[in-house]
Amino acid sequence: MKISRILVVLIAVGIVFLELPASRAQVSADAARSASPQLVIIDTDIGDDIDDAFALALALKSPELKILGVTTTFGNTEMRARLLDRYLQAVGRSDIPVFAGPPSKTDNVMTQAAYANRAPEKKHGNGAEFILREAREHPGEITLIGIGPLFTVQAAIERDPATFKKLKRVVIMGGSIERGYGTNAQGKPNPPQPEWNILCDPAGAKALLASGVPVFMMPLDSTQVPLDAKDREAIFAHGSPLTDQLTLLYHQWMAGTQSHSPTPTLFDPVAVTYTFRPDLCPAKPMHIDVDDKGLTSAGQGAPNAQVCLQSDEKGFLGLLLKRVDGN
């Protein structure tokens, strides 16, 4: 009887030890998958406001992301692509390809054109085609980060909607749900109003929301995060190749127009942050309607987006400063 019991125990223990390596292997495989960087494409109107430059800086300094390429959108997209060429070369990331989206008419001032003009002039590939090509090669794996008007995104959808659906998701900075820009005389948020990225291309926003790809929206409600003098001077004083580019672009932005405050608002970096730290901007499912004047509102019907209405500004700023100031 004792021998039988001993045999049972030994057999059970042996089974446990036999199973341990496989279990550990599975845990290791799961950990490796979770540690692998996300594949992302960034679509930007860099060169007007300064927040795009900070958004790209954050993406470059975030090991959670692997940037497959950057596409430009809105206005003079070739000029924006030249700006990116110089920026990426200066920070040692010329390996990241740059593509130009369809140009569009605008009288908006490109404040950082002088920076772009110092890059060699060349013809860039088609941004919409690049998005579709990468979606075919990496089905279900790519996050498209849209931080400008959605002309290039719209062009990709119109060119091949089935391939566009192969994207894993699209994270955008855009919209105004419960608050607009800034505050009133009493310090209360202004009511909702057309937000710039949606205002410039309402049709693109409508097309994206109807595309069937999961959409995550960071509207004015959660992205009006100021970069005050103390924090920005710490960045400018850091002296790395990356912060030097931010310093140059910031001062060109300031000189390009006298109508704004010297304090940048970090709209676009919030969208980048959401891709790997969604806890800093919790989103909830909503049905978003877009009218022809660019106004976005919560409507009736099945959810067509996940929307963040409030972000952790302190946590977000702490993350951005640590990443951008890091060596």
Rank of each mutant, 00 (worst) to 15 (best):
P226H: 07
Q112N: 12
E233C: 02
S28H: 10
L7V: 11
A283E: 04
I46Q: 05
G125M: 04
V170A: 05
L280H: 03
G256P: 12
R33C: 02
H287N: 07
V153C: 07
K123F: 01
A31P: 00
G301E: 08
A81N: 10
E233N: 14
T263Q: 14
R277K: 13
P285D: 00
L18K: 10
I157T: 03
A25I: 04
F316Y: 14
Q258H: 15
K206C: 01
F164T: 12
P194M: 05
E121L: 09
V109R: 12
F54P: 02
N108L: 13
T143E: 07
I15P: 09
N184C: 08
P120L: 04
S311C: 13
A12F: 15
V324D: 02
D279Q: 09
D279G: 13
L65H: 08
L249F: 00
N126I: 03
V98E: 09
R136K: 14
I288P: 08
A31I: 08
T77K: 06
F164Y: 08
P63M: 06
P219N: 11
I42F: 06
D51L: 07
P103K: 11
W253T: 11
H138V: 07
L317Y: 10
Q154D: 13
I41V: 13
P63C: 04
A53P: 04
M173N: 11
A55F: 01
D312K: 08
P278D: 01
F316C: 06
D30A: 14
V225L: 14
T111Q: 13
P264K: 04
G326R: 08
V109E: 11
L18Y: 09
A12D: 00
A207P: 12
Q112R: 00
L321K: 11
R133S: 11
S176M: 07
A156H: 01
P192G: 03
M254T: 15
A57S: 15
L18D: 01
G148H: 02
H238N: 15
D221T: 09
L58N: 03
A305L: 10
H251W: 15
M1D: 10
D45E: 12
H260I: 13
I235F: 05
T223K: 00
L246C: 01
A207H: 04
A162Q: 14
A271K: 01
V171F: 02
G315A: 09
I235H: 08
S259G: 13
A305F: 11
Y274M: 04
I288N: 06
I157L: 02
M217L: 13
L280M: 06
P241N: 06
Q186F: 14
V153I: 15
A31S: 07
A207K: 06
T152G: 03
K61I: 00
I42R: 02
Q186S: 12
L88V: 04
V307N: 07
L246E: 03
E233L: 11
L56Q: 06
S240V: 08
C308T: 09
L242T: 07
L167I: 12
I11E: 03
L56A: 02
D279Y: 06
P241T: 09
T73K: 00
A271I: 10
D325R: 15
G69K: 00
D95L: 00
L84D: 05
Q258Y: 15
P202R: 01
Y87L: 07
V98D: 10
G125K: 03
